[in-house]
């Protein structure tokens, strides 16, 4: 399968933070969800792809081209929604159309206004008068209107109500229908990722903890809930992390079928991405 995005050994050092050996492959027609707590390195990774940060080690290829050498060519085909970064708020949605027409070769005004209409966004109102959710929708409309092949989205659904979130998620799903387009998406709303992501990459403290297909993750991983007696029976090597609650232990296991065969415990719950994050970050090894 051809990769639309390939990151090899991406590293970047800051005074108090380090991105270490990030490797990501995103095939065409797929959605990859980036998860991790605040400050884990998700946005830094995204910024490196877009050349917003400099002086990093490693190689980043988008559409098979080097992101620094072929920067302009690549950016014609990327749509971006970044957390809190957008047009100055005294501009109006109609200005954005007028500006972007001059910036992107493929800017499609009719598509842009169609999205504004679908999202019930005003055309002649300053951005600062829009609610947070409406701004987000405007950012999404702007990122889609030049027919990009890759969407890079940092928290695209934050601030949206559930109805709007569903609407936006449907648009993202439509976007990858032609199988030539892909999405790299970071989100704290893990349920959204459970709905749409094909791959999940979990970044923690600047390192990739795991990167797998979502189906693989959901089918293999599980959370065992048990009392102290059962917990003590579990071999250290059979548990990834555990957390002690008031009345029970929660144990994250990597292969729930194997685990079940060995221990015959009935209360193995289906793992959610939230469970995975909480247990991997806060749990004990």
């Amino acid at each position: 399968m051809e990769n639309i995005l390939e990151i090899k050994n991406l590293s970047k050092k800051y005074k108090d933070f380090q991105l270490k050996d990030i490797n990501i492959k995103l095939p065409k027609g797929m959605i990859m969800g980036l998860i991790g707590e605040n400050g884990a390195g998700k946005t830094t990774t995204i910024k490196a792809i877009l050349d917003i940060i400099k002086d990093y080690q490693g190689e980043i290829k988008v559409f098979g081209l080097d992101n620094r050498i072929d920067e302009k060519k690549i950016k014609e085909d990327i749509g971006v929604v970044l957390d809190d970064m957008f047009f100055p708020e005294i501009l109006m949605p109609s200005d954005i159309d007028s500006i972007m027409r001059e910036i992107y070769k493929n800017w499609d005004s009719s598509l842009y206004f169609k999205y504004l209409n679908d999202f019930s966004l005003p055309i002649k109102k300053e951005i600062k008068t829009l609610s947070k959710g409406m701004r987000k929708k405007l950012e999404i409309a702007t990122c889609l209107a030049h027919h990009p092949k890759l969407l890079i989205l940092d928290e695209p659904t934050s601030g949206l109500d559930p109805v709007a979130r569903n609407e936006v998620i449907d648009i993202f799903l439509d976007f990858i229908q032609n199988e030539e387009c892909s999405i790299l998406l970071s989100s704290h709303i893990t349920t959204d990722l459970e709905h749409i992501a094909d791959y999940i990459t979990f970044i923690n403290q600047g390192e990739i903890l795991l990167s797998k297909t979502k189906d693989e993750l959901m089918e293999q991983y599980g959370v065992v809930k048990c009392g102290l007696e059962d917990f003590l029976k579990i071999d250290k090597n059979d548990r990834l992390r555990y957390k002690k609650n008031r009345y029970e232990y929660e144990v994250l296991v990597e292969n729930k079928k194997e685990f079940n065969k060995k221990y015959h415990m009935t209360t193995i719950d289906k793992m959610t991405l939230e469970d995975l994050m909480v247990l991997m970050i806060k749990g004990v090894k």
């Binding site: 910024k47 877009l50 050349d51 060519k73 950016k75 971006v80 970044l82 957008f86 992107y104 890079i152």
Partner: peptide, 8 residues
């Protein structure tokens, strides 16, 4: 920062 993501 947003401007850097555009093809300019």
């Amino acid at each position: 920062s947003y401007a850097i993501t555009l093809p300019n």
